[in-house]
Design a protein around this nucleic acid. Structure first.
Lengths: 89, 89
DNA sequence: TCCTTCTATCGTAATATTACAATATTAAAG
DNA sequence: CTTTAATATTGTAATATTACGATAGAAGGA
């Protein structure tokens, strides 16, 4: 498939932020998928974490699953895990 | 190798711009590696193209090779070609 | 040397992103 | 219902990015 510069660069930009990159990697590796756990792990205000999650969500990188009061996010764009694997090389 | 969030997100951010993504892909595929050819291909002012090249250069993604008056750029971070390949999926 | 061409840098206005407190919403428990 | 915990949204100031004209530098030819 041909590159769609606008759309693809949106994906890269979304994970091209240290906080979001760390959050996404955390979602891939661990099972700390709810917001409060991520808030603790990141050491950032809840609103800041939620805002970053919103950016990842709006780009279709992650998706929420309601679990009572909690919201558990998971990575739904398969390319993202691969992108991170490539970065590690 | 572990992810270095700051450094790796810099790479992603650098190619996370439609113009730079297109330029990098162009450098990988074609042999139009000098600035003037890229200016024509991109349809943007020379200073703008040069500025984007500077960003890619400062992140170690591309490197210049002097060829008389011309400057020919090439992609020197092997991960970038792979990242773009993943994006195409 | 003096042009001319190619590329880089500077200055800066417009726009976008970021961080975070404050506030709103949602859902379960009592 | 009311309270409480979890999450999202809003408002906004600080900062960063972007675009591009103007200018500077570098290299070869006349």
């Amino acid at each position: 498939m041909a590159i769609m510069y606008e759309k693809d660069s949106e994906i890269l930009k979304a994970i091209g932020h240290p906080v979001r990159l760390k959050m996404v990697e955390g979602l891939i590796n661990n099972k700390d998928c709810n917001v409060n756990d991520m808030v603790k792990k990141m050491g950032l205000p809840q609103s800041t974490v939620s805002q970053h999650l919103g950016i990842l969500r709006s780009r279709g990188i992650i998706a929420p699953r309601k679990d009572g009061v909690r919201t558990c996010y998971r990575v739904v764009d398969d390319r993202v895990e691969e992108l991170i694997r490539v970065l590690k090389k």
